[in-house]
Simulated scan of single mutants.
Amino acid sequence: MTVTLDNGRLVVTISEHGAELTSVQNKETGFEYIWEGDPTIWGRHAPNLFPIVGRLKGDRYKYRDKTYFMTQHGFARDDDFKIVEKTDTTVRLRLVDTEETRSIYPFHFQFDVVFRLTEQDTLGVVYAVTNTDTHDIFCSFGGHPAFNVPLESFGDYYINVDPRRKYPTAKLVGPYLDNNLEGVFDANQPLRLDRDDYREDAKILRTEGNPITFVLSKKAQSHGVTMHVQDAKFVGIWTPYAKDAPFVCIEPWWGIADTVDADGNIKHKYAINHVAPAQTYTGSYTLTFF
Rank of each mutant, 00 (worst) to 15 (best):
1 M>K: 02
3 V>S: 07
5 L>A: 03
11 V>A: 04
11 V>G: 01
13 T>E: 00
16 E>P: 02
17 H>S: 13
19 A>P: 05
21 L>I: 06
22 T>W: 04
23 S>Q: 14
23 S>M: 07
24 V>I: 11
27 K>T: 09
30 G>F: 12
31 F>T: 11
32 E>K: 09
34 I>H: 15
35 W>R: 15
40 T>G: 05
41 I>D: 08
42 W>R: 13
44 R>E: 15
44 R>W: 10
46 A>E: 14
46 A>Q: 13
55 R>W: 02
55 R>D: 14
56 L>M: 06
58 G>E: 13
63 Y>M: 00
63 Y>P: 01
63 Y>N: 05
64 R>K: 15
66 K>W: 00
66 K>L: 06
69 F>S: 13
74 G>A: 07
75 F>E: 02
77 R>G: 10
86 K>F: 08
87 T>D: 01
87 T>W: 15
88 D>S: 15
89 T>H: 14
89 T>C: 06
90 T>A: 08
92 R>L: 14
97 D>K: 13
97 D>T: 00
100 E>A: 10
105 Y>Q: 04
107 F>Q: 12
112 D>V: 12
114 V>Q: 12
114 V>R: 09
117 L>G: 05
120 Q>E: 14
120 Q>P: 11
120 Q>N: 12
121 D>I: 07
121 D>T: 06
126 V>W: 10
128 A>F: 05
129 V>Q: 10
134 T>G: 10
137 I>M: 13
141 F>G: 07
141 F>V: 02
150 P>H: 05
150 P>C: 08
152 E>C: 06
158 Y>D: 04
163 P>R: 03
163 P>Y: 01
169 T>R: 03
170 A>W: 13
173 V>L: 10
173 V>D: 04
174 G>A: 00
179 N>S: 13
185 F>A: 03
186 D>F: 05
187 A>Q: 13
188 N>V: 07
205 L>K: 05
205 L>H: 02
208 E>I: 14
209 G>Y: 01
213 T>E: 14
213 T>Q: 15
215 V>I: 15
216 L>S: 06
217 S>H: 08
217 S>C: 12
220 A>R: 07
222 S>G: 05
223 H>Y: 13
225 V>I: 11
226 T>P: 02
232 A>F: 12
233 K>G: 14
236 G>K: 13
237 I>W: 08
237 I>L: 15
238 W>S: 10
239 T>P: 02
240 P>H: 12
240 P>C: 07
258 D>T: 07
261 D>F: 02
263 D>W: 05
266 I>W: 00
272 I>K: 04
282 T>S: 00
283 G>W: 11
284 S>D: 02
284 S>T: 01
284 S>V: 01
286 T>R: 10
287 L>M: 08
288 T>G: 02
